[in-house]
Design a protein around this nucleic acid. Structure first.
Lengths: 161, 161
DNA sequence: TGATCAGTTCGGTTTGTTCCGAACCAACTA
DNA sequence: TAGTTGGTTCGGAACAAACCGAACTGATCA
């Protein structure tokens, strides 16, 4: 039995490649997550994932554990069955944006440190090159809030719908 | 001669580690970029970078080429000299945000494709799980603009100051 | 109790990345 | 033209990441 249409396979490949490059997941994890986001809420079993990816038991296990740790994937069980059904947890875009937001936040924090240093040690740099001191600092604070709010709105939006 | 104070060395290490993890640069490239963002507009020569990083000629060359390709670093020359002086191009935070923005944009594009697919193939998923159809789509469009504007504002701010 | 099922853990192989030294090139200098 | 300076390119060593098979665990079932 074919678990996957041709078109779906192509999309999985595209999404997988994408997660690998941009969000640097290991190749197999990336493809597994690709499968999840393109699948119904039903999800897939361990076996089916082996079948689709043509990967080994241990590799699939490791990949699923990583994805669960990242909160990208979750599983549920059907009463009476021991098998787990794996599916994407939350929406794909929310997971991705949350990650990006974390990075941006960390960027801004590092920026503060760097600005402080340059203010003291490379004042000419600090002025001319865009390390614009307290005004810029305030400005960035504002943008930081802006970005935070975007994520909040997405969260709220989803909860209300 | 010591090209680098103790305090600066620590910051370089911290920044380097950060670029390595979050923006996945190779270790040496990450440290070199750390040096750049913590240095005056004067920049450093190839030799000085070898001295500070204790790395080989070829490694420094490769690193600088990567950083230039990413537009993180640029060089200038002094009239009459053949030597290049390397320095961070643009402000660090701008470079970082630009990168993040690119990722978010790509995320949103992939989201559209995935939503389209799920709409057709996993309609129940599409409804229940946050793939909320055209409303969500419109909503995301708006957020996309929001994020774009943040970057624009940073750019404008810097140009005006 | 033994057998089976669902998944994990552990070494080892394969694959890929990062860095190095040595040879090289291109521009200038004596 | 030969030598020096500033930097690049190439092949390989050292290390790390990704995946595999085989042995294992822990739960259920006959």
């Amino acid at each position: 039995m074919d678990l996957c249409s041709k078109h779906k396979k192509n999309l999985i490949e595209e999404a997988g490649l994408y997660f690998e490059k941009r969000h640097n997941l290991p190749p197999l994890s990336a493809r597994v997550y690709g499968i999840m986001v393109l699948s119904s809420l039903e999800g897939y079993t361990f076996e089916e994932l082996m079948e689709i990816t043509q990967a080994s038991k241990s590799s699939v296990s490791t990949s699923l554990n990583l994805l669960q740790q990242l909160k990208f994937v979750e599983y549920y069980t059907k009463p009476g069955e021991r098998k787990r059904y794996f599916r994407s947890s939350g929406s794909f875009i929310q997971n991705m944006l949350k990650e990006q937001y974390g990075t941006i936040k960390a960027d801004l924090e590092l920026t503060e440190k760097i600005n402080d240093f340059n203010k003291k040690n490379n004042p000419e740099n600090y002025r001319k090159k865009g390390y614009l001191g307290s005004i810029f600092h305030v400005f960035l604070e504002q943008e930081k809030k802006n970005i935070e709010q975007t994520l909040e709105r997405i969260k709220d939006f989803k909860e209300q719908n």
